[in-house]
Design a protein around this nucleic acid. Structure first.
Lengths: 204, 204
DNA sequence: GATTTCATATGATGATTATCATATGAAAGA
DNA sequence: TCTTTCATATGATAATCATCATATGAAATC
């Protein structure tokens, strides 16, 4: 048995795998799935292309792993803030997500806007991972929301996610800075409207 | 000069070009830009690959043309309805857009959800066409909306577009029918909230 | 009718890519 | 120390793709 201290063969293989997944998570978000080859990913991970198939069955398996690994900012975007009312909290989340910094750094951002259409056309495995990650985001957000008259907390969360994902994606696809910022701002403002209008407070 | 009646050489070339653009508009929406080769598009147009460069400089020029050609349903989705109030009209638009039929037929649907990320990474020409088409949609919608306290009519339109595009795209990327339908329904319901709460009608 | 033009077809070309086969070299086990 | 194992490197392979070069055949012009 090896001295438990240093890196065992198993540990180093795991470290390689982690590096591959991290490189893929970044490159796929930046360039799309078709825009980053297996050799590109391996090279970005500091390895050569041949070893790839010792870690994954095929590229699609890497897509699924990279997608799961790319959702690591969720806790930062959707952070409970019991001090805020619902509308303020949604506005706060939207501001953290729908901004120029996030727009300009897709490689370190949310994987849903750059990858959703690719995933929609990909295999069922990737779609299952996508759904699981989206659901986790929705549940985390719903935990801070109240049920409304038409939309329960989970529905509100799904709708706000759709708005945020759509707004960010469109802000990246237009050419002018002015329209791009307008999309971000308008989407931020609509997000807060998902909070119930609270007729009870007014109509009592 | 040829008898003006039949198809001149010029007219037949134009017809070929139209067929290429129509085939590209469908295939790009169905498979993504990278998923449809020039040869695929030409074959779908009933031609062979070689003639392509007599019509377009390169594939990117075709992307721009196909994108402009793929927005032909806008008038159906965003149809003025002076008989409805703002919230009802937005709900009506969202219902026409965010439904299972549209979700399951991307080849004949809105080009924004399937193509936005590809366009974001593509050349500036395609992004300019994307922006022009998005702007036309926003202006058509804004013409039926009122300015609100935070969001003017154009902003409301951009936000509703972001929500619709995001909701449709996510509904295609998840695996289960239940979550997919939930995304469509929740997004439809939030769309109507873009209408001003009309404090004037209540608070007067 | 002869000749020219040109839209399209046929047939390269060179680059890229996913995937597989085999070599290597260092650590693990004996 | 010697042998085995195995993670990774090097080096194919076969397919796909955008793009280019040339051939063809029918319409347009003379």
């Amino acid at each position: 048995m090896a001295a438990a201290g240093a890196t065992s063969r198993q540990e180093r293989k795991q470290a390689s795998r982690d590096a591959i997944v991290a490189a893929a998570a970044r490159l796929f978000r930046e360039r799309g799935i078709g825009g980053a080859s297996v050799a590109d990913v391996m090279s970005a991970a500091g390895l050569t292309h041949g070893g790839f198939y010792g870690h994954f069955d095929d590229k699609e398996a890497l897509v699924a792993a990279a997608l799961a690994a790319a959702t690591n900012h969720r806790e930062r975007w959707i952070e409970p803030r019991p001090d805020m009312d619902e509308a303020a909290w949604l506005a706060w989340i939207a501001r953290r997500y729908l901004n120029v910094r996030h727009r300009d750094d897709p490689g370190d951002g949310c994987p849903f806007p750059p990858l959703a259409p690719d995933i929609a056309r990909d295999g069922a495995d990737a779609r299952r991972v996508f759904e699981a990650e989206l659901r986790k985001s929705a549940e985390r957000m719903a935990a801070g929301l109240d049920d409304g008259t038409e939309l329960d907390a989970r529905d509100k969360a799904y709708a706000v996610l759709a708005l945020c994902v759509g707004g960010l994606m469109l802000s990246r696809a237009v050419e002018s800075e002015a329209v791009s910022r307008r999309l971000l701002r308008a989407s931020r403002l609509l997000a807060a409207r998902a909070a119930e209008a609270k007729p009870s407070a007014r109509d009592t």
